[in-house]
Nucleic acid binder design. Sequence first.
RNA 1: GCCGCGGUAGUAUAGCCUGGCCUAGUAUGCGGGCCUGUCAAGCCCGUGACCCGGGUUCAAAUCCCGGCCGCGGCGCCA
Length: 443
Amino acid sequence: MLKQGFIAELVARIDELEGSNVRVCGWLHSVRDVGRIKFLVIRDRTGTIQAVFKRGCCDEEKFRRAGKLRLETVLCVDGELVRGRTKEGVELRARDYAVLSEPVEPLPLEPATSHEAGLATRLNYRWLDTRNPRVTGIFIVEAAVARAFREYYRERGFVEIFTSKIVAAGTESGAEVFPVIYFGREAYLAQSPQFYKQMAVIGGFERVYEIGPVFRAEPHHTTRHLTEYHSLDIEMGFIEGPEDVMREVEGFFRRVRSDLLGDQVTRSVLEMYGIDDIRIPREIPRITMREAYKVLEERYGKKLPYGEDLDPEAERLLGRYASEEYDSDFIFVTEYPWGSRPFYTMRLESEPDWTTGFDLLYRGLEVVTGSQREHRLDRLMANIRDKGLEPESFKFYLDFFKHGAPPHGGAGMGLERIVMQTLRLGNIREARLLPRDPERLTP
RNA sequence: GCCGCGGUAGUAUAGCCUGGCCUAGUAUGCGGGCCUGUCAAGCCCGUGACCCGGGUUCAAAUCCCGGCCGCGGCGCCA
């Protein structure tokens, strides 16, 4: 290996390494050439360190050139690690350096200040944008959320599954699908693993989870939609009602909170974004849709037609309600109207206009959707007809229910939305390394 | 898909309403120079831009139309 270790590690080990020779590899972050002494700041993913070049430190030609290196040059500097009056408290007394790669044209984006550039420019040059620690931090948080998801559900007896993303039929929600040509036949990119995760539960796994991409061919132009995003899905059998699913969702968000706040690296990212806490009370408040209509109208003067879905403003207001009334960043909205839920949702036994469907709002944005699913074949077919659909077109799905299906339910969560809301990002594209939207297909 | 706003050097912006004073200003980057402890380094010199197409006008960065792209809101969704 050319590189001995991350800069932050070297800095942290100063007591042990002081006075010894180390090699620092990374990108040239800044140059302050003061004549006979030159300061080069080297950056890697973990931090920066200042390398000091004094006349006589190395051969004259190399010394002269050190002050002329372009920003973002990739290099390794050898030298003695010493304490210094720098921000890190540590600096490198340089003896030699090797340039590994130099920029061949002017930088279209300056990494140090990339977060001040327009988002379109940043995305066009994502490989420069992500050299900014504020930006890398987003994806370190994203990785931590994904890891928390896998660990939490594995510990809770769920099995990770990997379902196909090339499917024969558009699935459930009526969202537009991307067609693909599959050996001459028409196929689609999966818009959700919904049917397959239910199949896995019915197939005896009982409890499953999956992290995977999903595709929506909707021409949205908003700060919270992507045409490709990551869905965190769970599905579990032998439940008594949607509350069993909600409890598992709630536990996961508690885990996200404790992981993010408990780890020094993710905690410092949160601090960069001015986030000092993620508020989850002893129990996340729950409000039925029918109560929500009332709260919205009486408290905020927001009138929603009875039986209608929440619009974005209503979501924001309920987020505010959770914050003011319960000191919570989260609120479950339950018992969604049948009219705004997909056919596989189980309806309430005594009030079939309302369902077991729920959403979880995080700081006023929907990040989770779930429900108990209808596992009784006759009811399921009736629900399909009730939606004006043809049971024949869902034959492959309905077949799952013919050979013994336990009562079950589950939820789908948007990874990028969770990250966006956690860091209070203004646009979901920031939370995705390579976002796809109706206009953007590269890089 | 609908509605609104916008597109000026590599980047971020000023100028546009009220056309001529724009040879298009500023910061940063980039190129060169000075400086032995800088850390938002400093100082000096230089470089570099009006999205594309059409129209109005003596004259267009500025006004009008179309296209493309961007930003935001809505519908729909996670």
